[in-house]
């Protein structure tokens, strides 16, 4: 059963259409969603997760979000939360385990240990007890990734997991994403750095308010397609890099 299938999806912000008639099936493996600013990349993830109102059909593992909730993980943009929140790195990751307690009481020890293991997977075990406000940007991103891992999902939707992180963190995150795929999970990530797309991802969805192209990176990540997606000026700028 395909993990994510979207049919005739429309999203409006007020009167303005943000996404128009999106139909797309997420392939197995590591997929990048790419497109210019305002193309609706984050919007597509949020609509798929039922976080914003939309028209059309979203099926997760062939069923509805409510049925599939436990199998879906999400990594939002780092800037979407207040990092001055009174919590340790472990506290944040442990929140991914809260639904297992049905939202009552303290988290059992085994759930906290699972959260600690997720921190260990991203190389953050030593900083588990550090307040999140005292972490660097890259470390905060790793905490978010650990929280996503701690959901133990089969489908992971990530909003710019590689945005504004140092080179070491980027390598670490890519390693984790590839390990997830090797373990049979489906991972889709909004991605900005066009240069790294062929090295990291197997599939790409090129988006600009509508689906420009979707397929393997070799098929669709071509100069012509990039021009169609971004317009000529950015494609030239990228080519000059």
């Amino acid at each position: 059963m395909t993990p994510l299938s979207i049919r005739h999806l429309n999203v409006f912000y007020g009167e303005r259409p943000a996404l128009v008639d999106i139909s797309w099936e997420l392939p197995r493996g590591l997929t990048a969603i790419i497109g210019p600013n305002g193309a609706g990349k984050s919007t597509l993830l949020k609509a798929a997760l039922g976080l914003i109102p939309c028209e059309g059909e979203v099926r997760l593992f062939g069923t509805s979000l409510d049925e599939a909730r436990a199998r879906v993980g999400y990594l939002p943009q780092r800037a979407s939360v207040d990092w001055d929140f009174p919590a340790s790195a472990l506290d944040v990751v442990a929140m991914a385990r809260t639904p297992r307690t049905r939202w009552w009481g303290a988290l059992p020890r085994r759930e906290r240990e699972a959260a600690r293991a997720a921190l260990d997977e991203v190389g953050m075990a030593a900083l588990a007890d550090r307040p999140i406000g005292q972490l660097s940007g890259g470390q905060q991103q790793r905490v978010f990734l650990a929280r996503c891992l701690a959901q133990e999902a089969d489908l992971l939707l990530m909003d710019e997991p590689l945005a504004a992180v140092d080179a070491a963190t980027e390598r670490e995150i890519i390693r984790v994403l590839q390990a997830l795929v090797a373990a049979g999970k489906s991972v889709v990530a909004v991605h900005h750095d066009l240069a790294s797309v062929p090295h990291v991802f197997e599939h790409a969805l090129m988006l600009n308010g509508r689906v420009v192209a979707a397929g393997t990176v070799a098929e669709v990540f071509t100069p012509a397609m990039i021009v169609t997606t971004y317009g000529p000026s950015l494609a030239e700028a990228e080519a000059a890099d």
Partner: peptide, 12 residues
């Protein structure tokens, strides 16, 4: 308070 969207996705 920390991340309402993430909580919503978790079924809260």
């Amino acid at each position: 308070c920390f991340d309402a969207e993430f909580a919503a996705l978790q079924g809260l």
